[in-house]
Write a protein that binds this DNA or RNA. Structure first.
Lengths: 156, 156
DNA sequence: TCATTGTTTTAGAATTAGTCTAAATCTACT
DNA sequence: AGTAGATTTAGACTAATTCTAAAACAATGA
């Protein structure tokens, strides 16, 4: 009868930086390895987005990219984010209907969302879902599990 | 270290209809019991929405209400859905950024979403989340857990 | 190098879900 | 009935996102 079970395992740290490539070289090879053609705009967008683990809206990313002096249009930010999502480099998070968040950490993890403050933060420990496929809707395969734990401030 | 655990239990069936009230009386007392003043519009909206377990957009509900002959504005549908959400009678489901679904079944349950077809269906078995509160972000309390299992068609 | 071709970017228009507004209508209460 | 507060309404408005069609760019091959 059980259709889902979750097991807990800890988040392995990203221990990169032990090879001598520059950030730009790493970004370039990341994009290339996904079959993404390199352009000035995609590089600066990726550079900004992947600078750290973050949850950003298209607009926030657009501002950040502009802030770094690059000339990139908003349409390109949307196009590029869409491309990155398609290639699995970033994840979309749907928290409310008014805006989409893009998570620069595409690896499997979940989120706390504070409905009072709007804070969106990672759940540090991972839940690994193991699905018994015949319990999924007929003719379908698992894509991804989105788990959002909505929290409120205790004393608002 | 474990911050979440899920236990499985089966969905108890709604065994209503063993008292002699009409659907309209039940709707009225449901709304009243939540402190919602009765109006013609709220009654017909609730009637349409709670006729069955369903996931609808505001627009779909607006069309359904209009289809039943009632004269209700779209703003009222939005206002009323917002009110019902605030009162805990319906749940919002955020599947993508382009539209909000309203779930006429507000009890705790989760969803399969087929990204190919757009089908949104209930997970039949429930996952009861037990959170250790000190693992939540400081100063926050659990509100609600949203779990969406995204699936794809096997042979598209 | 130049021409050709396909890809990408761009500004701005278009779309669309949802919210806001201010007036009209209702409802409840005296 | 009269008043006050709540609710509804049509349509204007907003904001995120998509679309469009032209311009810029990149890659390829003669």
């Amino acid at each position: 009868m059980e259709i889902l079970s979750f097991s807990i395992y800890t988040l392995q740290m990203d221990s990169k930086n032990d090879n001598p490539t520059t950030q730009q070289e790493r970004i370039d090879s990341l994009l290339s390895s996904c079959g993404i053609n390199l352009t000035k705009q995609r590089r600066v967008i990726a550079d900004t987005l992947f600078a750290k683990n973050q949850h950003v809206t298209a607009d926030q990313l657009f501002d950040a990219v502009k802030g770094s002096g690059a000339r990139v249009s908003k349409a390109t930010v949307y196009n590029t984010l869409g491309l990155f999502v398609k290639k699995g480099l970033v994840r979309e998070i749907f928290i409310d209907a008014s805006r989409t968040f893009y998570d620069s950490n595409a690896s499997h993890h979940h989120h706390f969302y504070n409905v009072d403050t709007g804070d969106l933060i990672d759940v540090k420990d991972r839940l690994a879902p193991h699905f018994v496929s015949h319990e999924l809707p007929a003719g379908t395969a698992m894509d991804v599990v989105d788990l959002v734990i909505r929290v409120r401030n205790c004393n608002p």
